[in-house]
Design a protein around this nucleic acid. Structure first.
Lengths: 156, 156
DNA sequence: TTAAAGCATACCAATACGGTATTGATTAAT
DNA sequence: ATTAATCAATACCGTATTGGTATGCTTTAA
């Protein structure tokens, strides 16, 4: 299925609400109410977002969360990495490539290439893009020309 | 981690050996020996490859496996789908988008866009590309310019 | 007829993941 | 200074997925 975790998905939903709120700080309760997520789940999501530096937290009474940067400066890659760690399609592509298989690990470097492509796709789409229906339509519409462009780069 | 399953990785390794063998049929034992994979694991891998039509099987004595198409005609997307099913980063992006969350599911369509980009990246890289070190180097080297190209397409 | 091969099914263990609860630390307001 | 609101940290548990393994059956060339 090549899927990301649900928490990552939740993260995007939460960030969307925070972007909507702008300068107004949202409490855990607010976020739970707005998104429909369970409170403990929201806590877990917020921890990851704060740890990764995408969200600022203010403790104490009248505290809450707000975006650490403008939506246009928050890349999908940042979000994915906040929840899933570094993008590594295969074990081999990870930092410590420990291949059990003797022979065919010459392929590992190639996975690295695909990894980079994936990473860069995620790096070029921001939270702002995903919130804007117009930008999204462009993204889908231009998906086909993209193949032509990749062809120009002589990948295949 | 955004990773694919190990079986998918094994699949690539096996396909690489089959490409190497060319017209010569390889038995399950041969493949296990060449790749270092356990025999039952090889069986599982071969089932997926045969079911997906990427590999032809001949039963009986002197049987074995061979590629159903030329390596240049086997896309990474085909391989991934053979093991992982359709590419769907989120539940929402799947065919039956059943969102538990009430509000923010306007985002689902956007995930679809990213999905398409991912899919197309996988569709443009073939087994032949991944086997050729030279092509692979080009892929990695040109990864940076790619961002510029995507920019031209006005994604962000 | 036989032996070499692929086919199908079922099973088990480990891990990862999502979800939940509990307790502690901080801070603004009064 | 006290209080209440709010975030922080940790720990736990059930389930689902995944990887790995075993076993018996079917096909087919020699």
């Amino acid at each position: 299925m090549l899927k990301i975790g649900k928490l990552t998905d939740y993260g995007v939903v939460v960030l969307n609400e925070l972007a909507q709120a702008g300068a107004v700080k949202l409490s855990t309760d607010d976020i739970a109410g707005l998104t429909g997520l369970a409170l403990p789940t929201v806590r877990k999501v917020m921890k990851a977002l704060v740890d990764s530096g995408l969200v600022m937290a203010q403790r104490g009474a009248r505290g809450g969360y707000r975006l650490a940067r403008a939506p246009g400066q928050i890349r999908m890659l940042d979000i994915v990495q906040a929840f899933e760690g570094p993008v590594a399609l295969t074990e081999c592509a990870a930092d410590d490539h420990q291949c059990d298989i003797t022979a065919s690990c010459s392929l590992s470097a190639n996975w690295g290439g695909i990894n980079q492509l994936m990473t860069q796709v995620l790096a070029r789409v921001t939270l702002q893009d995903i919130r804007n229906p117009e930008r999204q339509e462009r993204l889908v519409r231009d998906a086909v020309p993209l193949t032509t462009l990749i062809e120009l780069v002589n990948i295949s």
